[in-house]
Design a binder for these strands. Sequence first.
DNA 1: AATAGAAACGGACCGCAGTCCGTTTTGCTC
DNA 2: GAGCAAAACGGACTGCGGTCCGTTTCTATT
Lengths: 201, 201
Amino acid sequence: MCLVSLIPIRPGLEPERRDAARNRQLVLRAARELIEECGADGLTMGTLAQRAGVGKGTVFRRFGSRAGLMMTLLSDAEAGFQGRFMFGPPPLGPGAPPLERLIAFGEERIAWVLEFGELARAADVSAYNRFDVPAAVLWHRHLEMLLREAGLTADPWLMATSLSAVVEPERILHAVRVHQIDPERLAASWRELVSRVVRGA
Amino acid sequence: MCLVSLIPIRPGLEPERRDAARNRQLVLRAARELIEECGADGLTMGTLAQRAGVGKGTVFRRFGSRAGLMMTLLSDAEAGFQGRFMFGPPPLGPGAPPLERLIAFGEERIAWVLEFGELARAADVSAYNRFDVPAAVLWHRHLEMLLREAGLTADPWLMATSLSAVVEPERILHAVRVHQIDPERLAASWRELVSRVVRGA
DNA sequence: AATAGAAACGGACCGCAGTCCGTTTTGCTC
DNA sequence: GAGCAAAACGGACTGCGGTCCGTTTCTATT
């Protein structure tokens, strides 16, 4: 089971130095505590460094940026999601017809966003390359593959892009939190959408 | 012709004081110059204030935030777009069948994003309420109306939300600038998508 | 155990968006 | 024109993400 990480793989095979490993754990633990207390949006890198008892430079050296840190914190949930749609039981995993897998993918993603969405929003790199993060590329490829399997011949790549846009955390959270849309209604709309997209060839 | 502004209407009817009006013009002129020279992303509020010859506080008092300033700069282009799809000639404006209007809306929007997208990205308020800006609400209502007219009975409100997501500036610019997708291909995919969404009642 | 150089450390520092509040300008009233 | 309250001004200030670089710690080698 080879999952694609949300964060770049460490290129070298050499393990980190002992102090580096220790500090990583310190920072991650402190980050989880702070998010528990103040929410993801309330976490600042300065406070985090202080709480972890390390310098700010260390935090940035380890995780690159605030978004990188959030990605690391997400990676467990991320790996779980990946595992389910790539290797898990049908209808989400392989074995079910493509339309059913598409439907299940959206439903699962909506539920995932409702659980981890705040973190995911904080992890969104603000620049263009937000869509080129490995995990996002994987989701996209998965959608594209299912669309092809369902017989969609008209530009599955772009259609997968459109479907990805529909289940972006920001919109889903807005619909649920601001407009009080029932998550089940979101799922129903997704079912309707993908059914129509793949209907008839 | 009553267009919905991208920025909140000034609540009071009283005109601004003369110095306020003068400074607004100074700031807007300086902003256009700076964007010309450095791009929207290169504009900083400090530099802008300096260039305009006013204090930073004045800029923020006038426009509220960097995003607010960008919205003001966009409002002409925005009003033009609104005018075309609400009152302009078919197929974008009233008179054409709903599916054709939907198709034209997407095509026009894609072209608009390619022209003003950088500004639009800079104008995007980062918070949740980005989707509740008057202009965004208007686009959404327009899509919803066209979907209803096209006979879509299954949750037109959420379907309009999904379609809005598809033509967000960030994704479109990413597709074109990073993946070098031909804009005509984007338009074709949009046609395919909306045709399938409204097909069969 | 001594050593050397690579890696990691940490906090002063930078540029930015946005705020605050004492000062100045404006336009209305007499 | 003098006086006055309200509005606008402006720049010092805050808090943030992120960088830089002199200092410290580790580990491989002898």
